[in-house]
């Protein structure tokens, strides 16, 4: 048994959820999402250490693109399983990729059910991630529903220790509006509280077109936490740029105010009037930073040559 676990990923002692590392990772890698960090860490921790959990932990992440929804799930997984996203107990579904064709929906339904059961049977601590939930057909959501409920066993498998994470862009407008209003009232961002959002998110997830719309999942209160990902302001985007610069080994540029400004200028901000929040979050930051770096290489070289010639 021991030898087997040395070669294959086992569902046991070797894969230990590390609460401290998770918190540290959030602190170092995710910027400007204090609501998320608190609620995610605490909810996972308490679910993990609860020997008699009544139901699987169900989280629903909401927010605009580039705010870090995918990144957060990756961090959670990396701190739960040794092999991270490659672990066989992490099931990642992208609605548009795994279930693209409406014609085969019956097949998808069976497939999805099978995979959920198979994974949970092998490991009670399985994690299921559904990306782009807003594009998931409601029939597929109906398939998932029984697994999320307060049952000791579904199809003979105990799901109560698993974690379900749903990612979607639903409600991102509402989140942005609340954050914007808050900002315009002159309050600090860290004063925002979860309760400001949860009700609105629930309503918008329930009523907006697509995905979780009108599903029993919400009306039966099966989702434990609705977690808002706030839009990022310039301050946080520049932190993203700095992290990327450090990763590329350009510490010197991280302190270069002019360079940072150039990268920030090449990104888009909203609303039109005050330009407070980045419309692409920290997406495109890497590409734009790389572009500015290699542009600089050019201008430096050409400047040097020019001086030499003089």
């Amino acid at each position: 048994m021991f030898l087997k676990c040395l070669f294959y990923t086992c569902c046991g002692e070797t894969d230990i959820f590390n609460y401290h590392a998770l918190y540290k990772d959030f602190d170092n890698k995710i910027f400007g999402q204090h609501l998320m960090a608190e609620s995610v860490v605490h909810s996972i921790k308490s679910h993990w250490h609860n020997e008699h959990s009544q139901k699987p932990l169900v989280l629903s992440f909401h927010g605009g693109t580039g705010t870090g929804k995918n990144y957060v799930t990756e961090i959670i997984v990396n701190n739960t399983y040794r092999s991270g996203m490659h672990s066989p107990f992490v099931n990642y579904f992208v609605a548009t990729n795994n279930f693209p064709n409406k014609k085969y929906i019956e097949d998808y339904k069976l497939e999805l059910k099978d995979q959920l059961i198979r994974s949970a049977r092998r490991c009670q601590r399985s994690i299921f991630i559904f990306d782009e939930t807003d594009k998931l057909q409601s029939e597929l959501i109906q398939v998932i529903k029984p697994f999320l409920d307060y049952y000791p066993a579904v199809f003979g498998v105990d799901f109560r220790k698993t974690i379900f994470i749903f990612l979607s862009n639903k409600g991102s407008k509402e989140i942005a509006n609340i954050a914007l209003e808050h900002h315009e009232n002159g309050k600090i961002r860290s004063q925002l509280e979860l309760k400001h959002f949860e009700r609105t998110l629930m309503l918008s997830a329930f009523n907006e077109e697509g995905g979780l719309r009108n599903t029993d999942m919400i009306s039966n209160q099966l989702i434990d936490h609705f977690i808002p990902f706030l839009p990022l302001s310039k301050f946080y985007v520049s932190q993203c740029i700095q992290v990327h610069l450090r990763k590329r080994g350009r510490h010197d540029l991280a302190k270069d105010g002019e360079f940072m400004q150039r990268v920030l200028d090449s990104l888009e901000f909203f609303p039109e009037s005050s330009k407070i929040f980045s419309s692409s979050g920290c997406k495109r930051v890497n590409a734009k930073t790389d572009l500015e770096i290699s542009k600089m290489g050019f201008s430096l070289n050409s400047k040097k040559e020019f001086n030499d010639e003089l």
Partner: peptide, 21 residues
């Protein structure tokens, strides 16, 4: 010239790109 050359270059030499260019 600026954008294409620079972006392809930095994407090619980046050991761990997070997404395709």
């Amino acid at each position: 010239k600026d954008v294409v050359v620079n972006s392809i270059k930095s994407h090619w030499y980046n050991e761990n790109p997070r997404k395709p260019l």
